[in-house]
Amino acid sequence: MDFLLDTQALTDFLSTSLRLSIPIIFAAVGGVLAERAGVFNISLEGCILAGAFGAAVGAFLSGTPVGGLFLGIAVAACAGMILAGLAVGLGINQLVAGIAINILMIGMTSYLARLILGADATSTLPGFHPIAIPGLSAIPVLGPVLFKQDFLTYLMYVTVPLAWWLLYKTPWGLNIRAIGDFPVAADSAGISVPGVRVACVMASCMLAGLGGCYLVLSQVFVFTEHMSAGKGFIALAALILGRWNPVGALLACVFFGLTDALQLRLQFNSPEVPYQLFSMVPFVASFLALVLFAGKVRPPSAIGKKYVRGGK
């Protein structure tokens, strides 16, 4: 743990932590929106993958990261449309619908990526590059960690407070919270329960898609099959730990980012130990965090239940 004392090493470590947590943060904030409106979004994982795939294809075809960003969000939105259609429209069990989307996305993205990217799948794609914010980035340690980042990181800085503001400081947020807790009341107040739920699911999936965009456009610059690798599920654990609050979810994600960075460092420092022992650390951390703390928090009461008008 002596790297914590060395400024450069500490900066690297925190920087890695942040980079590892950003995809989860986008997904977790998305998850908060959907679950606050009473819809489980197990498909966050699939949406990250959809976003990553779209970003790769978009960047490949357009040659710019912005093209990747747009297509990434668009593909994730398609996943969101399917989820909204199945879970809100048809009233299918939300968990089942989410799992279906995850399976579909794994297959679709692998297949289409091979078709479209083909031999170019391993070549580096255009991505976003770090922009140092003058002044702020000069702060020791935290400056380079927080303010020498790329566009999507700054977007995340805006997204979390925006989501918080939306939920707690606007009438829409009030509608969302009411629907997640007692949709009958919201309906009787003239709010369209399916409408709000569809909007939240779409936003949720698009945010998770942004997480996928970050993976491709800011982190590794290639698309690999199933590159989401469980990040969507960690995001689900994070939003429970964050008590369905965007800011809480952010903190939980940063915690997971730190554990992930730590295990990477341990892998690097102890090559003699099989790396799998370390790579399970984020999952063990999520598991323990859920078991230790989740019993004490109360999810939105209407979560997972389809809403049928007149049904009591």
């Binding site: 199945l86 989307i101 399976i103 579909l104 996305m105 297959g107 297949y111 289409l112």
Partner: peptide, 12 residues
């Protein structure tokens, strides 16, 4: 991989 995609379609 197309079979994986079809499997996803099946479950949907």
């Amino acid at each position: 991989t197309v079979i994986e995609a079809i499997q996803g379609l099946v479950i949907i």
